[in-house]
Amino acid sequence: MINRRTFIKNSSLLALAVPLRKLSLPAFNRVKLRDFGIQLYMVRDAMEKDTPGTLGLLGEMGYTQIESYSGSKGMFWGLSNIEFKKLANGNGLNLISSHYKDSDMPFEKQAAMAAETGMKYLICPWKGPQKSIDNFKHIADDFNHRGQICKKHGLRFGYHPHDYPYKTVNGQLPINVLLDHTDPALVDFEMDFYYTVTEGLDPEAYLNKYKKRFRLCHMRDVLKQRLPAGDKEESACDLGQGIIDYPHLIKTALANGMKYFFVEQSRYFNETQLQSAGVNAHYMKNLVL
């Protein structure tokens, strides 16, 4: 027999359950990212000390993809291209792309080696500020040429903008010039959401306007309270701890052709690079769009 106290308690729980159930209904139409990656520059110190061990930890954290870069040991971390691919795959990591450096070896050779691993992209990480907008037009021509080389080898060429392409030169934004003067059939872009936001532009507007041009991205967050201008690492923070609405932004990105999402933190608040990688992996695993 249910007494008055039990009845009141159960009635109260039921009253709470009804609105909660109604609020959760839209979640049936929401999804999570199946795969997400990390730019290895984020854990560069650990990679330098122990490449196999670090890749093992990244796999355990839940990362399924990696983007390499050309550090002191090259984009394959002192191994052959095939050895590095096997090491990554053995830890549940798919080598999607790498930032390259021209001083390592001729670009065509780098493209050939990347293609042998099944890598999807070679990415230009840096061109630096330019004195005239015409310089950016020449860079666009160079990107088209490199795009042809990559296409010949069965992969894609991409460009990763930092902050400078979002700063006006001769009355124009270099990022717009680069997008408008590169061939979509040959050149893709890797948006860094952090720089787009901190330079005062709208990443969603770019995704919508330049559909299927931004195929990859770097993800970190922006502090609610911005640090003073000139701070070495500016106002970066771990995902979910800042102002960027990533659930909404990634939905827009996916709708406009983005395929690869790489975490890349540059500022560490009382944590190591690997600890930050863990925090960001947890965010990505639990991100609901």
Rank of each mutant, 00 (worst) to 15 (best):
N208P: 00
D163N: 12
I139T: 09
Y260S: 07
N144R: 07
A253D: 00
I243M: 01
L216P: 05
H181K: 14
N270D: 09
A255M: 15
Y283G: 00
H162C: 04
E48I: 13
A27S: 13
L13D: 14
E199V: 10
S132M: 10
A15L: 15
S24V: 10
Y69I: 05
G147H: 10
T252G: 02
N135G: 07
F262L: 02
Q130T: 04
K224Y: 02
G53W: 13
N208I: 03
L227F: 10
N29L: 14
L173H: 14
N286T: 12
H99S: 07
G158R: 03
I149L: 09
E264V: 00
E67C: 12
N29M: 12
H218W: 06
R146S: 09
R220Q: 07
S103E: 08
V279S: 12
Y63L: 04
C237P: 00
P247S: 12
D104E: 11
N256W: 13
K109L: 09
L289T: 10
V288P: 07
L216F: 11
L55C: 02
D183W: 02
K137T: 05
R4W: 11
N208C: 08
D188I: 00
Q110W: 13
G240N: 06
I82Q: 15
L79M: 07
A140Y: 12
S11F: 15
E264I: 01
M75C: 07
L14W: 08
T51Q: 04
S132F: 15
L254R: 11
H99T: 01
K9S: 11
K120V: 05
R213Q: 02
N280F: 03
D188M: 05
K209H: 07
Y63G: 03
S72P: 01
R220N: 02
D50F: 06
P184F: 14
D50N: 14
I96A: 02
L227K: 12
G171C: 06
